[in-house]
Amino acid sequence: LGPKYVGLWDFKSRTDEELSFRAGDVFHVARKEEQWWWATLLDEAGGAVAQGYVPHNYLAERE
């Protein structure tokens, strides 16, 4: 699936296409579209919880 990303700060969605998340949440990014990335929010087991657009500057690649 490629690298995983972690949320740096809490983010509250403003549209139906955006995905709310908390700092520390883990994502798989499917598409990078300039300022907004289409991402899947993952649970602790790595299963998909939700999908939506997230601001790229709120995520960091997980080491």
Score class of each variant (00 low, 15 high):
residue 48 A to W: 09
residue 24 G to M: 02
residue 23 A to G: 04
residue 57 N to K: 07
residue 39 A to I: 04
residue 56 H to Q: 11
residue 13 S to R: 08
residue 55 P to A: 03
residue 40 T to S: 07
residue 35 Q to A: 12
residue 35 Q to Y: 15
residue 14 R to P: 06
residue 35 Q to T: 12
residue 33 E to H: 10
residue 59 L to P: 04
residue 41 L to E: 00
residue 40 T to N: 04
residue 9 W to V: 09
residue 8 L to F: 03
residue 29 V to W: 04
residue 3 P to C: 12
residue 3 P to T: 12
residue 12 K to Y: 14
residue 17 E to Q: 14
residue 59 L to E: 02
residue 40 T to E: 08
residue 5 Y to A: 01
residue 40 T to G: 01
residue 10 D to P: 08
residue 14 R to M: 11
residue 43 D to W: 06
residue 27 F to G: 00
residue 36 W to H: 07
residue 22 R to M: 10
residue 57 N to F: 09
residue 21 F to Q: 00
residue 8 L to G: 04
residue 52 G to N: 02
residue 9 W to K: 12
residue 40 T to Q: 07
residue 61 E to N: 07
residue 8 L to Q: 05
residue 22 R to T: 09
residue 54 V to L: 03
residue 40 T to K: 05
residue 49 V to R: 08
residue 27 F to Q: 01
residue 62 R to I: 15
residue 2 G to M: 14
residue 43 D to C: 02
residue 11 F to K: 02
residue 61 E to A: 10
residue 44 E to F: 09
residue 32 K to V: 06
residue 55 P to G: 02
residue 46 G to A: 05
residue 6 V to M: 06
residue 58 Y to P: 03
residue 36 W to K: 10
residue 29 V to A: 02
residue 37 W to C: 05
residue 22 R to G: 05
residue 12 K to A: 12
residue 32 K to Y: 08
residue 42 L to Y: 06
residue 34 E to F: 08
residue 10 D to F: 09
residue 24 G to V: 02
residue 11 F to S: 02
residue 58 Y to T: 04
residue 50 A to T: 07
residue 21 F to L: 02
residue 32 K to T: 10
residue 57 N to G: 09
residue 45 A to L: 12
residue 17 E to A: 12
residue 30 A to R: 08
residue 28 H to A: 10
residue 23 A to H: 06
residue 62 R to F: 15
residue 62 R to H: 14
residue 34 E to P: 11
residue 35 Q to E: 14
residue 23 A to N: 04
residue 10 D to C: 10
residue 42 L to Q: 02
residue 22 R to H: 11
residue 3 P to R: 10
residue 52 G to A: 02
residue 30 A to F: 11
residue 48 A to M: 11
residue 53 Y to R: 10
residue 19 L to H: 01
residue 36 W to M: 13
residue 53 Y to C: 08
residue 41 L to S: 01
residue 59 L to S: 01
residue 58 Y to M: 07
residue 41 L to N: 01
residue 12 K to W: 11
residue 60 A to L: 10
residue 4 K to C: 15
residue 29 V to F: 02
residue 36 W to F: 11
residue 30 A to M: 15
residue 43 D to Q: 04
residue 54 V to A: 01
residue 1 L to T: 12
residue 28 H to T: 14
residue 57 N to V: 06
residue 25 D to F: 06
residue 26 V to R: 06
residue 38 W to Q: 02
residue 39 A to E: 01
residue 45 A to I: 08
residue 28 H to F: 14
residue 25 D to E: 03
residue 17 E to C: 15
residue 38 W to Y: 12
residue 43 D to G: 05
residue 19 L to C: 03
residue 55 P to M: 04
residue 59 L to R: 00
residue 42 L to D: 00
residue 52 G to H: 02
residue 57 N to Q: 08
residue 41 L to C: 03
residue 17 E to G: 12
residue 4 K to Q: 13
residue 34 E to Q: 11
residue 47 G to R: 15
residue 32 K to S: 07
residue 4 K to E: 12
residue 58 Y to L: 07
residue 61 E to Y: 10
residue 22 R to D: 05
residue 11 F to Y: 15
residue 7 G to W: 05
residue 53 Y to S: 02
residue 47 G to H: 15
residue 30 A to N: 15
residue 47 G to S: 12
residue 58 Y to N: 03
residue 29 V to P: 01
residue 60 A to S: 10
residue 9 W to L: 10
residue 15 T to G: 13
residue 56 H to C: 15
residue 36 W to I: 06
residue 42 L to R: 00
residue 54 V to Q: 01
residue 38 W to A: 00
residue 28 H to D: 08
residue 19 L to I: 11
residue 51 Q to Y: 08
residue 43 D to R: 02
residue 44 E to H: 10
residue 22 R to Y: 10
residue 4 K to L: 15
residue 37 W to F: 06
residue 14 R to V: 10
residue 41 L to H: 01
residue 37 W to G: 00
residue 47 G to W: 10
residue 10 D to I: 07
residue 14 R to Y: 09
residue 58 Y to D: 03
residue 13 S to M: 05
residue 49 V to Y: 05
residue 46 G to N: 06
residue 26 V to P: 02
residue 51 Q to G: 05
residue 24 G to A: 02
residue 18 E to W: 13
residue 32 K to R: 09
residue 27 F to V: 03
residue 52 G to M: 02
residue 5 Y to S: 00
residue 26 V to Y: 10
residue 49 V to I: 12
residue 20 S to R: 02
residue 22 R to A: 09
residue 16 D to V: 10
residue 45 A to S: 13
residue 35 Q to R: 11
residue 3 P to F: 09
residue 39 A to P: 01
residue 46 G to S: 05
residue 24 G to L: 03
residue 49 V to K: 09
residue 3 P to E: 08
residue 6 V to K: 05
residue 23 A to L: 05
residue 50 A to W: 06
residue 1 L to N: 12
residue 3 P to D: 08
residue 57 N to H: 12
residue 19 L to K: 00
residue 2 G to A: 14
residue 30 A to L: 15
residue 33 E to L: 09
residue 47 G to M: 14
residue 23 A to T: 06
residue 33 E to C: 15
residue 38 W to I: 05
residue 48 A to E: 12
residue 11 F to L: 01
residue 56 H to Y: 14
residue 17 E to N: 14
residue 55 P to E: 05
residue 20 S to W: 05
residue 27 F to L: 11
residue 56 H to N: 10
residue 46 G to T: 04
residue 7 G to T: 03
residue 11 F to W: 14
residue 50 A to F: 04
residue 33 E to Q: 08
residue 32 K to G: 04
residue 3 P to I: 13
residue 10 D to R: 04
residue 59 L to G: 01
residue 46 G to I: 08
residue 51 Q to K: 06
residue 34 E to N: 12
residue 14 R to G: 11
residue 14 R to E: 13
residue 56 H to K: 14
residue 27 F to W: 03
residue 11 F to N: 04
residue 54 V to P: 01
residue 61 E to G: 06
residue 63 E to P: 13
residue 46 G to V: 04
residue 7 G to Q: 03
residue 46 G to E: 06
residue 4 K to H: 14
residue 13 S to W: 05
residue 23 A to K: 12
residue 59 L to H: 02
residue 32 K to A: 05
residue 13 S to F: 03
residue 47 G to P: 02
residue 57 N to E: 11
residue 25 D to I: 08
residue 3 P to V: 13
residue 42 L to G: 00
residue 26 V to G: 04
residue 43 D to M: 03
residue 29 V to K: 01
residue 18 E to Q: 15
residue 22 R to S: 12
residue 56 H to E: 11
residue 9 W to A: 09
residue 31 R to C: 11
residue 53 Y to D: 01
residue 3 P to Y: 09
residue 51 Q to A: 11
residue 21 F to C: 08
residue 62 R to A: 15
residue 59 L to V: 04
residue 16 D to T: 11
residue 50 A to R: 10
residue 17 E to F: 12
residue 44 E to N: 11
residue 1 L to M: 12
residue 15 T to I: 08
residue 55 P to S: 05
residue 35 Q to S: 11
residue 60 A to I: 14
residue 31 R to A: 07
residue 54 V to T: 00
residue 60 A to H: 10
residue 9 W to G: 06
residue 25 D to H: 03
residue 37 W to Y: 08
residue 33 E to T: 09
residue 57 N to Y: 11
residue 5 Y to K: 00
residue 51 Q to M: 11
residue 10 D to V: 06
residue 60 A to Y: 09
residue 53 Y to P: 01
residue 11 F to H: 08
residue 32 K to N: 07
residue 41 L to D: 00
residue 63 E to N: 12
residue 32 K to P: 05
residue 37 W to A: 03
residue 47 G to D: 13
residue 31 R to Q: 07
residue 37 W to V: 05
residue 26 V to F: 11
residue 9 W to R: 13
residue 23 A to I: 06
residue 33 E to W: 09
residue 6 V to F: 08
residue 27 F to K: 00
residue 28 H to V: 14
residue 12 K to F: 13
residue 58 Y to A: 11
residue 59 L to A: 01
residue 54 V to I: 06
residue 36 W to L: 10
residue 3 P to A: 11
residue 27 F to T: 01
residue 20 S to T: 09
residue 59 L to K: 01
residue 49 V to P: 02
residue 10 D to G: 04
residue 11 F to P: 04
residue 16 D to K: 12
residue 43 D to L: 05
residue 16 D to Q: 11
residue 45 A to Q: 14
residue 32 K to D: 04
residue 30 A to I: 15
residue 36 W to T: 04
residue 57 N to S: 09
residue 30 A to Y: 11
residue 40 T to W: 11
residue 10 D to N: 07
residue 19 L to Q: 00
residue 18 E to A: 09
residue 52 G to W: 06
residue 19 L to G: 00
residue 2 G to I: 14
residue 19 L to V: 05
residue 38 W to G: 00
residue 12 K to D: 14
residue 3 P to L: 11
residue 28 H to W: 12
residue 12 K to Q: 15
residue 25 D to W: 05
residue 23 A to C: 08
residue 59 L to D: 04
residue 14 R to H: 10
residue 24 G to K: 02
residue 9 W to E: 07
residue 26 V to A: 06
residue 14 R to D: 11
residue 11 F to G: 03
residue 19 L to M: 10
residue 38 W to F: 13
residue 40 T to H: 08
residue 14 R to Q: 13
residue 31 R to L: 07
residue 35 Q to V: 11
residue 20 S to D: 07
residue 6 V to Q: 04
residue 10 D to A: 05
residue 50 A to K: 10
residue 35 Q to H: 15
residue 23 A to F: 03
residue 35 Q to D: 13
residue 46 G to Q: 05
residue 39 A to R: 01
residue 21 F to E: 00
residue 59 L to M: 05
residue 61 E to P: 14
residue 61 E to C: 08
residue 20 S to G: 06
residue 40 T to L: 11
residue 58 Y to Q: 04
residue 15 T to F: 10
residue 44 E to W: 08
residue 2 G to L: 14
residue 15 T to Q: 09
residue 63 E to L: 12
residue 38 W to V: 06
residue 33 E to F: 11
residue 45 A to N: 15
residue 16 D to G: 11
residue 23 A to E: 07
residue 6 V to G: 02
residue 52 G to L: 03
residue 18 E to G: 10
residue 12 K to G: 06
residue 37 W to Q: 00
residue 50 A to C: 05
residue 41 L to I: 06
residue 5 Y to D: 00
residue 37 W to M: 03
residue 23 A to D: 02
residue 28 H to R: 09
residue 43 D to S: 07
residue 53 Y to F: 10
residue 29 V to Q: 00
residue 19 L to P: 01
residue 61 E to W: 07
residue 63 E to T: 13
residue 53 Y to M: 07
residue 23 A to V: 07
residue 5 Y to N: 00
residue 30 A to T: 15
residue 42 L to W: 02
residue 43 D to H: 02
